[in-house]
Amino acid sequence: MAITELAPKQERQKKEKSAFREWFDSVLFAVIAATIIRWLFFSAFVIPTPSMENTLLVGDYLFVSKLHYGTTTPVTPLQMPLTHQYIWGTTIPSYLEWIKLPQFRLPGFTDVKRGDVVVFNLPVEHPETYRKYSNVLPDLHPHPLDLRSNYIKRCVAQAGDTLEIRNGQVYINGSAQPIPFRMQNEYFMSTTTAVHEENVFRKNGITDFTPFTETFNDTIISNDESGYIVKTTPALAQKLKTYDFVKRMEPLYLRKGLKEPSLFPATDLTDWNKDNYGPIVVPAKNGTIMLNDRNTAIYADFIRYYEGNEHVTLQNGKLVLNGKHVDQYTFKQDYYFMMGDNRHNSADSRYWGFVPKDHIVGKAVFVWMSIDPDPTNFLNKIRWERLFRIIR
């Protein structure tokens, strides 16, 4: 029988990708890689407000580590990649709430500690609480937990701490705490003459100053004095004090007992202000509190909206859980008390309460770029001295 040798199959020639397909594949790979890095390792943020001056300035670009505290899994997975709340340049939401997942936190290097500069999701953008704080934060809108606005503040009290502020000084568990190196306070600068703002204030990096026009509550300013209300660091205040046209530099604090109505908690049972606040206990996981009238006013919203409880109501000022009045409560997660380093120009925990652990995003690590937003400062737009500065 004749045998015919079969010729080997010819390999099919691969089709070459079109230029558009190569471009699309490259963009898709870059988006997927950037999304994974942004979720798992670190994110880039820009500072839009002066609440952390002089530690962080408006126009600072920084990297925030997700690894330090452990990154969290998405709660709202149906989201356009590389967006946060809205599609770029629009007010169209970038997410859909059709699917909501439970949140888990991956292991991290460390826990949030006192003194850390922390990025977190703003708790009061919860759908049940945002309206209560519109007088302090007028642009509040409700968002899912993982898509609430990113805020950056310094942790001044950990879970379980008792915090008190006396005349501007923070005390934790009865001990005075170190003052952040670049922390700003409000000062009255009494002067003998008008000041050349460019040579005195801007030359020293002071951007927040106003001429004094009226008595600051009932503090140390006399009605016949002239000068400026200046927000600056203690070190710069001492420098300004040496100028021959400066009579004195005095820190301005609200007196104890002068109630500031916009502070947290919204109750007549406290008479606190931003300079004299507390004492208040920061909730800790497995920590139990007694629900007297004062504690109910402080902690009720956190028990109702941030602890994963169902069927929690307030009836005549009493907490009702699963149909039963409760006189004590054990917390399910840790909380933190956050404050801005610009202590007299910061909407922080003094105004809206604690930050739950499940709202923690990451630790601010370093500034990689800094651009001066002042439109007149064309020649020195980049603040070169701030590049790659470690955040402390």
Rank of each mutant, 00 (worst) to 15 (best):
Y305Q: 01
Y335L: 00
A157H: 02
P375M: 09
F29E: 13
I172Q: 03
R38L: 08
D301W: 02
W23R: 08
L291E: 00
D146P: 07
E97Q: 13
C155Y: 07
A2F: 14
I221G: 11
V230Y: 02
G362W: 00
S94W: 01
D271A: 13
T215A: 14
P81M: 02
I165F: 09
R105F: 06
M189H: 01
K9W: 14
Y277K: 13
L236S: 03
N54R: 03
L319W: 03
Y277N: 10
H344G: 01
S262K: 11
F388N: 05
N295V: 09
P283G: 04
E16C: 11
I391K: 00
A364H: 00
L379P: 07
Y151E: 06
E164H: 15
T207Y: 05
P74C: 09
N173T: 13
N54K: 05
A176W: 12
I303D: 00
Q328T: 06
I3P: 04
Y187G: 00
A300H: 05
R392W: 07
L137V: 11
E16M: 12
K113L: 13
T219C: 08
Y151D: 05
D208V: 08
S190M: 12
H359F: 07
Q103L: 08
F366S: 00
I87K: 12
D218V: 04
V117I: 07
A176R: 10
I206W: 02
K285N: 10
P127L: 11
D224L: 11
L78G: 11
C155I: 09
G308C: 09
Q177L: 10
F245A: 06
R105G: 13
N292M: 05
G70K: 01
W272L: 11
K381Y: 06
F209S: 11
D293P: 07
I92T: 13
Q13V: 12
N316V: 08
A34Y: 02
D218T: 07
Q158K: 03
R248K: 13
G308P: 04
A347S: 15
L319V: 11
G227M: 14
H196M: 07
I221M: 15
Y86G: 06
T296D: 02
I36V: 11
T129C: 14
H359D: 12
G317N: 12
